[in-house]
Computed example of a mutant assay.
Amino acid sequence: MVLSEYGYWGEELVGPLEAFDARGYQVTFVTPTGKRAHALPPSMDADYIDPPLGRTVTTPEMARAVRALDESDRLDNPLSLADLIPERPYNSSINHLRELEAYHRTLQPAVDDLVAAYDALVLVGGSGPLVDMVNNERLHEVVLGFHAADKPILAECYGVTVLAFARDWESRQSIIYGKHVTGHPKEYDYKDGTGFLGVDFNMGPPPFPLEYILRDATGAFGGFHGNVGKELSVIVDYPFVTARSTPDSALSGELLVQTLENGLRRYGW
C-alpha cells in the first residue's frame, strides 16, 4: 500500500486495509522517501462537511478507526521508494547514454524483485498524492511492473491519477488507454481548501480536474464513469480497480479481494 507523506485520507487506507486484515493478508506500507505517513486531519473529523457534497463523509466509527491507526505504530518504518527504485537520469547529464544504460540495468531487477514479493498494489488517495505520488517516476515504474506482471492495482481518489501518468517512455501511452475507470468527477472537486500535511499552503482548488485527465487517458475505446448521484462508484476493469472517493474505500478493498481470490475481472460498468 503506497501512502503520501503529505497526507492520506483516512478511510481510503482503513477501508481496504480492514478487508485485507479480515482475510489475513500481509500488508506492507511504502512512502516516496520512507517517511511515516499520517492521515489528513479532516479525515479524522466526523463533523467535517465535504464542500462539494454538502455533508459529512466520515462516520464517528470511521473517525475513531482512522485515529487509532494513525496513533499506532503500524505505519512506522515504511519502505522507501527512493531506496528501492533508481532515479532516471536527466537527458542533460554529461554522460547520459551510459547513465541511462546503468539505470535500466538496475531498474528491472529492482522492479522485478518488488513485484515478485507482492500479489497486488494499492495507491491510497487524498490530497497528499497530488504532491508526491501522481508524477512520481519511481512509482510509475512500480505500477508498470505490476501491470506487466498482470497483477491487480487498486487506486483511490487522486491515486487514480498515477495510473493515467504511468506510461512507457517509448509509446508515451497511458496504461489505462482503452480501460474503464472511475475517479473524482468535476462535481466532486473543491473550489477552495485543498491542503497538505507538513506545509502551510492552501492550494485552493485541486491543480487539475481529474475527470478530464481520465477521459483523455482512457481514450476512444475506454471510458470514465463519474456515477454522479450514485452513492458508490468502484470500477473493476482488470487489472485495475478504481475507486471514486472516500465512501468507495471499503467496497474497493472487497473487490480487490475478489480479484485475487475469485478471479473477478469486471465490475461496475
Rank of each mutant, 00 (worst) to 15 (best):
Y6G: 08
G7N: 08
E11C: 02
G15L: 07
L17F: 14
F20P: 02
R23F: 12
V27K: 08
F29W: 11
F29Y: 15
K35T: 01
H38K: 06
H38T: 03
P42V: 08
I49W: 12
I49E: 09
P52C: 05
V57I: 15
E61Y: 00
S80C: 08
D83M: 07
S93D: 15
N95T: 03
L97A: 15
Y103V: 08
R105A: 03
R105S: 03
Q108T: 04
Q108N: 03
A110H: 08
V111H: 00
V111Q: 00
D113A: 15
D119L: 04
E137H: 13
R138I: 06
V142S: 06
V142D: 05
G145M: 12
F146R: 05
A149E: 02
A149R: 04
E156S: 13
G159D: 07
A164Q: 05
Q173L: 11
S174T: 11
G178P: 04
H180Q: 13
V181H: 02
T182C: 12
G183I: 04
E187K: 12
Y188C: 09
T194D: 10
F201Q: 09
P209C: 07
L210A: 14
R215L: 06
F221G: 02
H225Q: 12
G229T: 09
E231N: 13
P239A: 11
F240S: 02
V241F: 04
T242K: 02
S245D: 06
S245Q: 08
A250R: 11
G253H: 01
G253P: 05
Q258S: 10
N262P: 01
L264H: 05
L264K: 07
R265C: 06
R265K: 15
R266S: 15
G268Y: 02
